[in-house]
């Protein structure tokens, strides 16, 4: 592994391939490297374009997750630098949110960024949705999370009732229905969900 000391951060510089592999494998050190080197720039861009510090954190994390999902495919190759990819995804996500909020667009995608965004268009929207679903799932009570996790995992209702010590299958079904209702209403009431549709 080729490691070069950078001037700025006095740490090893990882190659694009190492970044992609590290991200794919969830290597904590690589993730720290990515955050250290790329988060400040992207967060600055968001905050400089009508976003808050929280928006910066949110968009960066979402972009990184989109890239992670792409990186899971061993056939995926970066056609530009890792940072250009990450920045293009972040910029695109943020511009879309600004548009939905009817705030003035202050910047546009460059040609290279447009190509990246076109390449990832369907992934970007889908992953944003999934991330929202997981976020809302995390807002449910632990009990509801347990029921739905088992249910969506394909566990039969009888087994769910036994595992969670419910008095009856009928009650387990009722609980599942209510938790699902709660989750769907949480999702639908989030303005981001309507923006993503």
């Amino acid at each position: 592994m080729e490691k070069i000391i950078t001037h700025q951060s006095n740490q090893f510089m990882l190659s694009e391939e190492e970044l992609l592999t590290g991200l794919r494998e969830g290597d904590r050190n690589v993730i720290k490297y990515i955050y250290t080197n790329y988060f400040p720039g992207i967060s600055f861009f968001i905050q400089n374009n009508k976003g808050s510090e929280e928006d910066g954190r949110d968009i960066f994390q979402e972009s990184l997750l989109i890239l992670y999902q792409k990186a899971k495919n061993p056939l995926f190759n970066l056609s530009s630098s890792f940072y250009t990819y990450l920045f293009a995804i972040s910029k695109n996500l943020w511009l879309k949110r600004l548009e939905k909020k009817r705030k003035l667009r202050v910047t546009f995608l460059e040609k290279e960024e447009l190509m990246i965004v076109d390449e990832l268009a369907s992934d970007i929207n889908r992953e944003s949705q999934y991330r929202l679903f997981r976020k809302k799932f995390g807002e449910l009570s632990t009990g509801c999370q347990e029921v739905l996790e088992l249910f969506f995992n394909g566990t039969p209702m009888k087994e769910i009732a036994q595992k969670l010590n419910f008095g009856s299958v009928q009650y387990a079904k009722k609980r599942k229905f209510q938790c699902k209702e709660k989750l769907i209403s949480l999702i639908r009431s989030d303005e981001l969900y309507n923006e993503l549709l």
Partner: peptide, 23 residues
Amino acid sequence: KGLKIAINDKKAMAMESLFDEVE
């Protein structure tokens, strides 16, 4: 359908937690 995929994606959930921790 999306819910099923999202909630069953344990790796993505783990990555989100890792990102949170590092951040």
